[in-house]
Design a protein around this nucleic acid. Structure first.
Lengths: 257, 257
DNA sequence: CGTGCTTTTGAAAATCATCAAGTATAGTGG
DNA sequence: CCACTATACTTGATGATTTTCAAAAGCACG
């Protein structure tokens, strides 16, 4: 049960200019709450950081000094037990805002699964901006509310769904997040009505998927293989899956059979 | 696996005056963000509702017309699968704010486990107040952030902890919430250092506990019995538990043995 | 073209769920 | 006030899904 993990080092800051105005992630992020004029203020506070795949950039329990905004790549967010058991609580991709904890320390860790670009803000300095622009605070509340809904859905999955239902849910949610690969801002009911095979990429390892779904890598592998033999999916490579029957998978994800 | 449940009727509104100024729950709730002068504005929007034990007052999927603030009693919040499997995502007690969903429908249901008093606000009308008082919006963001942290902790529990660890975690969190019985606003590190037996009340049924912890009622019962034979707790009645060794239980809850 | 890591596959083991009574508790009506 | 009934809780025996242990097969990278 207990698999101990090496503790990766926290990434060191790599300072760069922060051109918020031309930021590709802005349309997907809380920063969009500000208009171009105010964006300048934000730019002056932001530091852009590059994070290599596998690097931890938030350490659970560390003083929560910064807020982060993901502008490229994907991170896994996780909590650990003393013996090394890990629960991944979510994946953060372009536009995701991190660090909302009220407490003085981070309640979770974050590690890049792909090379990332992250926009980093000092908490204290961003707080001033938030007080100045209530629109951004409002947007943050929306984001937090959406995350809360997603968290409740994940609790349902972890507490009550079978391995099969968990994997089906995971694949469906990955498909629903296309092309914006971001569930947190999925305000509109994603248009998942297209037919034909749907290509979803899985930048995370089987181990990550297992720790996200509360399973072991073996169960993840076996279940995916079974989906394949049942012609629900194809697995061209380990990091890529073709969904052949999304509706059926969606049914499976809620216990229909 | 699938136990179907009768669908309880939604409670009808029981209109009463809303004396926010003298509200016992205010110190524990978001309403505290307003000073006495502004509280009057709030009062004019609130309707106090009485809910009998067992009554559902939020139906998952219904249009999210209202916000709620619990002023007395306890509710369980839950999500259902089509076949009746249920996941309780949390318990709401005095001071808890409900209905934060951004979407137009409730993402979860809520049912009273004890007779309750609830303060009800129209979403559209409360929105006006929020725009007027940024302090309250800020307080809401804090609340949402704290709930998010609690949700991540629960994901760790549901995804990675054993039955024993889950029950230990549950009892410890009930003890930590004393006397304010409210985890959501537990901003300060709860002073759990007192020794001697600690009395925690469990107003919810074993079935509720099971659905909260992702277990069956039998496993809940067996595990509590085992704690009793191990002298960790006493069980004077089904709805009351004496914790004899909180530190040991706290250790158990994170996998120490 | 090794070498190391990830993934897949197989067999055995374990935790927790299910099925099944039996016991306590609470609420109801006589 | 007490018996009666319904519900909740406990306890036991059995079973199944998932984990654990083990090893082979793929794949990526130097």
């Amino acid at each position: 049960m207990a698999q101990l993990r090496a503790r990766p080092m926290v990434v060191e800051a790599v300072r760069t200019t922060a051109p918020c105005a031309g930021c590709e992630a802005r349309p997907f992020s809380v920063c969009n709450a500000l208009d171009l004029r105010d964006i300048e203020r934000l730019s002056s506070l932001a530091v852009i950081i590059s994070v290599d795949a596998g690097r931890t950039f938030i350490e659970e329990g560390d003083p929560a000094e910064f807020f982060f905004n993901v502008t490229a790549g994907t991170a896994k967010l996780f909590k650990l037990l003393p013996d090394g058991r890990r629960q991944i609580t979510g994946f953060a991709s372009m536009g995701t805002f991190l660090g909302l904890a009220v407490s003085s320390t981070y309640a979770f860790g974050a590690e890049a699964v792909e090379p990332m670009h992250i926009c980093r803000f000092s908490r204290t300095r961003l707080r001033v901006v938030l007080d100045e622009f209530p629109a951004m605070e409002k947007r943050l509340l929306e984001v937090a509310s959406n995350e809360l809904v997603a968290a409740q859905e994940q609790m349902l999955l972890l507490g009550r769904k079978t391995a099969r239902e968990r994997l089906a849910s995971f694949l469906v949610s990955r498909a629903a997040a296309l092309p914006a690969q971001d569930t947190l801002l999925a305000d509109s009911p994603a248009p998942i009505d297209r037919h034909g095979p749907l290509r979803v990429s899985l930048p995370m390892t089987r181990s990550d998927i297992a720790d996200y779904l509360g399973l072991t890598i073996e169960t993840v592998s076996r279940t995916l293989t079974r989906f394949k033999t049942e012609r629900l999916i194809e697995i061209p490579s380990a990091s890529e899956i073709l969904i052949r029957d999304l509706a059926l998978l969606a049914g499976l994800s809620t216990g229909m059979r």
